[in-house]
Amino acid sequence: MAETDRVKVKRRELTETFLEGKNMSKVYGMGRRANRAVDNVNFKFRRGEIVSIVGESGSGKTTLAKMILGLTSITEGQLELYGQPRAFGTTAEKREYWKNIQAIFQDPFSTYNVFSKIDKVLLNCIELRGQKDLPYAQKVEIMTEACSFVNLRFAELTNKYPFELSGGQMQRLMIARIYILKPKLLIADEPTSMVDACSRATILDMLLKLRDEEDMTIVFITHDIGLAYYVSDTIYIMKSGQFVEQGTSDEVILHPKSDYTKRLLSDVPSIYEPWDLTSDDLLSEEDEFPTAAGGAP
């Protein structure tokens, strides 16, 4: 597949609701130290939709993602797949679920087990697809195809260890993994926060192609409001575990209603308008120490 040098999001009609979260909460710890990381959120993801969840650090984005992925338990509320509560009890059910819902993460360097060869990552996906007993030659075929989708040559990767790849190559390989699994939902937790603008466009390009081919739903979790605006159909703004605003990209970014969104937007550096560094509301909550913590002796 020839690599394109122009990336453009195709807008499309969205109807079929795929995944729905109802009153979902996550509480870490218990008793006095309980921390409500995600607090009663509701959302609806449709087939082929691109969603962004934007919010400050510690607002619970990753926690929500982990709940959806089934990597952490849901304290309250439920998750519905095509209107049915998700089946997530037995190992077989979990595997079935993970065939449909997958993720890529922020830091390509920590996404790999440095002790196993990288072919393993792709082989494991084939195993998850239930094709463990396929003859090796066919597995190689699948892997070669996946690698060429992300412009890597499989022959060059075999028998290599992750640290012998560049960060960009590692991130592409993660996308190749998704290509093999072809999940219905992909959660991308800050997939581009470590890369430059050009590589970000390349990664976007590949993810968008996947969406167009497989009708995949992609959830971007990001600090990058520009990216969120550019790619997504729907944006959720998250603060302290809650969604303070949600709507189509244009609604949320161009006509924000909540004060928090407005402030967030004013903090984003632009190249077209001057960036206001003087405003006083900058010295925000971050500088106020909760007196209860009382670190001073």
Binding site: K66, L69, L71, T91, K94, R95, W98, Q102, A103, F105, Q106, D107, S110, T111, Y112, N113, V121, N124, C125, E127, L128, R177
Partner: peptide, 14 residues
């Protein structure tokens, strides 16, 4: 909490 463990879990490993 490293992502490679998460990836393995997402691959359905015990």
């Amino acid at each position: 909490n490293r992502d490679h463990v998460n990836i393995s879990r997402l691959s359905g490993f015990g």
